[in-house]
């Protein structure tokens, strides 16, 4: 993420954004992208509008009237107009995240890089940010990095699963689901059976059903009388892709 955002130089290999090399053509790359890092700060004494105005200058938007118009558009888009004159230090976490998103959209980027945009947000704010990203995805390429599968389900058309710098999967979300289809099982069992089942299979979920439990696992096959095949989710697919690290035989 940092390499694509031109904050770090690659130690080896190369990367291009919009045909521009991230090492040699940083300025051109920066003009094309909007970046929302996972961990970012804002000047607490500046208001929302002033923060975006400052960022607008960093994008070299020197025409004050055009900058003002663009800031108003973006604030409207991310629903920040009501807090335009409030210092960002007084905003909630969700609002600050939306300010972060607004600053990344100021230059109408062709590529929007968002790193864990919903981490640490309450459920209502998480849904709001996720919906916003889904909306924005129709207009530009969004590169979303997340550990939350719900984010991927809501936003992504294509997915790449990275694990220890290695690409485990790359393709459409439907292809990712296809990769695990027929390998997802739900087993209704007594609680006493749980330990043995967990040793043999990779768990992706557990629900209580009265005095019994419903264990969801991913496996090529399951040898249990109460096991039945289930519709896969991206979470199941992700766990399946990571099965080598789960420490059990699939």
């Amino acid at each position: 993420m940092s390499i694509l955002a031109t904050l770090l130089d690659p130690t080896s290999g190369s990367a291009r954004v919009g045909g521009h090399d991230v090492r040699r053509e940083k300025r051109q790359v920066r003009e094309l992208l909007g970046y929302l890092p996972q961990d970012f700060g804002l000047y607490p004494t500046l208001t929302t509008y002033e923060t975006l105005d400052y960022i607008g200058l960093l994008y070299s938007m020197t025409d004050a009237a055009a900058r003002r118009r663009r800031i108003e558009e973006v604030m409207e888009r991310v629903n920040l107009t009501g807090v335009a004159s409030r210092p960002v230090g007084a905003l909630s976490g969700g609002m600050r995240q939306r300010v972060g998103l607004a600053q990344a959209l100021l230059n109408e980027p062709q590529l929007l890089i968002v790193d864990e945009p919903t981490a640490g947000l309450d459920p209502a704010e998480r849904i709001r940010v996720r919906s916003l990203l889904a909306e924005l995805g129709g207009e530009r390429v969004i590169l979303l990095s997340t550990h939350l599968i719900e984010d991927v389900e809501a936003v992504a058309d294509r997915v790449a699963v990275l694990h220890r710098s290695e690409i485990r999967f790359e393709g459409a979300t439907s292809e990712m689901l296809d990769a695990v289809r027929g390998k997802v099982w739900e087993i209704e069992a007594a609680p006493a059976e749980l330990a043995a089942l967990r040793e043999r299979h990779i768990e992706t979920g557990l629900l209580r059903a009265g005095d019994r439990v419903r264990l969801r696992v991913v496996a090529d096959s399951v040898d249990h009388a109460a096991a039945r095949s289930a519709e896969p989710t991206l979470e199941d697919a992700y766990i399946w892709l990571m099965r080598e690290d789960a420490g059990v035989a699939a």
């Binding site: 955002a5 003009e31 970046y35 890092p37 970012f40 804002l42 960022i55 960093l58 070299s60």
Partner: peptide, 14 residues
Amino acid sequence: AQMRTEALVYSKPQ
């Protein structure tokens, strides 16, 4: 560095 504004600021063309 303290306010963690680096990533926002230095990813811009300025």
